[in-house]
């Protein structure tokens, strides 16, 4: 699992690649926590490189959503691969997150 955080004037993008499983979810949580420290209230998680996610990883996504709501911010998730989208659907997560097909459309807050 690898994350790359890039900040622009209006939003922060966390690009996540590889596998978020029970072991790497802790690492993922740590990386995204850094992104909360900045002032941007708009966060995008770019999942184009995300190959695999288990319920431990979904727990972190849920935690991020809760934190963003608490600080009245917005979270956009983009570029889910079909197998990951399926997991989001099965979990009912597709209904609680704002999902976008690509990064470009996710940047419109």
């Amino acid at each position: 699992m690898e994350t790359t955080i890039s900040k622009s004037a209006n939003y922060t993008v966390i690009a996540v690649a590889g596998r978020i499983d029970t072991v790497t979810a802790v690492e993922f949580e740590r990386s995204v926590s850094q992104a909360f420290e900045d002032e941007n209230n708009a966060l995008i998680i770019d999942c184009s490189g995300l190959e695999y996610i288990s319920s431990s990883g979904l727990r972190v996504f849920l935690m991020i959503q809760k934190k963003m709501m608490a600080k009245k911010g917005q979270l956009h998730i983009c570029s889910l691969r079909p197998n990951i989208k399926e997991i989001f659907d099965i979990s009912g997560f597709s209904g609680i997150f704002k999902l976008f097909g690509d990064l470009d459309s996710a940047t419109k807050f």
Partner: peptide
């Protein structure tokens, strides 16, 4: 699976998968 963000729990999701 229809609970709001605030009420969503992760427990049980694995078995559901």
């Amino acid at each position: 699976l229809k609970a709001s963000v605030e009420d969503r729990a992760i427990g049980g999701l694995g078995i559901h998968f």
